[in-house]
Amino acid sequence: MFNAYYLQVLVVVGINTILALGLNLITGITGQLSLGHAAFMSIGAYTSAILSLKYQLPFAVVLLSGAFMAAFFGIILGFPTLRLSGDYLAITTLGFAEITKVVLLNMESAGKALGLAGIPQKANVYNVYVLVIVVVFALIRLINSRVGRAFQAIREDEIAAEATGIPITRYKIMAFAIGSFLAGLGGGLYAHYLTYINPTDFGFLKSIEILNMVVLGGMGSIPGSVLGALILTVVPEMLRFVQDYRMLFYGVVLIFLMIFRPNGLLGGVSLTKMLSTRKRRNLETNN
């Protein structure tokens, strides 16, 4: 049953889950719209791939370097833009993504338009899913903490958040850096699974695809992002015979979603709250 094709889809689902979770932290939980998530993914992918190809460093080292490099660029970009409130971040990330693509297309060490080939295939279903579990676990803990509550407060009302004692710029940059870190991590896994990367893999449509996963699953919901990544990876695979109509499919799904579930499939659902209500219900039935 587990032939190579299914296995590949499964791994891509895992990688997309990490990407979607990263964007969900920025957009769904902290409320900052980013339209350039794929750019941070490409920074992680290229950094880790170059380190692997040129210096043959261990997989864990290149993966972390890629993720930290993406986080570093996230901080650089977030520092001037996240001081402002509103939609500036969306425009800036959009521009940043295009710049990143053009730079990669012209960078000698990144293989220009040919991309990088022959990257060692180090990612597999095991290490990808171990990372998925670690990321899910860490994010759930993060959200239900002082730091995560500050993120959500910023999403709900920036003025009230600041008046309540939260340094909002610092927390916005922190959320953006963690989200970019996860994008870089996903990018590194992507490069070391498909063994070939090209700047056009990380274009605007990839950013939108990840955003779709977050919105479809439900903004701010961790299980939602996992489900969104699963559906938007598996269903297009099932629809391979109408590949040309894939974007049409996205459009139709999003329109129906906005009509029937404006908050996403699992909007407002959180794992810990689900568990605690079940516990409470069990207690009540026992009494």
Binding site: R146, R149, A153, E156, D157, A161, A163, T164, G165, I166
Partner: peptide, 17 residues
């Protein structure tokens, strides 16, 4: 200006930030 989508308890927890 409350944090509307968050619980009553969470609102007060944020106050202790």
């Amino acid at each position: 200006r409350l944090f509307g989508a968050m619980t009553v308890l969470e609102n007060v927890l944020i106050g202790q930030h």
